[in-house]
Amino acid sequence: MKINLTINGKEKEIEIAPDDYLSEVLRREGLLGVKKGCDTESCGLCTVHLDDVAVLSCGTLAAKAHGKAITTIEGVEKKAEKIRYELGKRGVDQCGYCAPGTIMSILYLEKVVKDPTEEDINRYLKGNFCRCSGYVGQLEAIKSYLEGQKHEVCE
């Protein structure tokens, strides 16, 4: 079957099987920032935005993306760079494998919650596992990134 969708701002028509999952389809399209992790909807590595809503692409049937807009890490390069800088500064971007999914969740939080608290950060990042660094440094990095964004908006 064919689906029409927008991926990172570009309109596409893609041939898929009715039982394809979105993560496989996006990786076939060359978007390798969509990582393969648990493949059981638990680790958050494959997080993308589907019409601006964060979802796990390993558990989303690709057919559901018909007529919708997908954003992957490749579509948010500038912001991702800023977040990676904050993570790297604290030594919490080690193997880097979880970073794309984590960054997509941070950007979702930034989009839907105004002035997020620590509780909000934990709530929205709970579904992203990191096996290198633990989460204290990540929390600091996220707070610092969000704080920086506020000033950017003010300037």
């Binding site: 909807e41 964060a54 979802v55 969740s105 990042l125 709970k126």
Partner: peptide, 12 residues
């Protein structure tokens, strides 16, 4: 609902 996996799954 809060402790059911993460926000992404709850969005699905």
């Amino acid at each position: 609902i809060e402790d059911i996996v993460g926000m992404q799954l709850k969005n699905m």
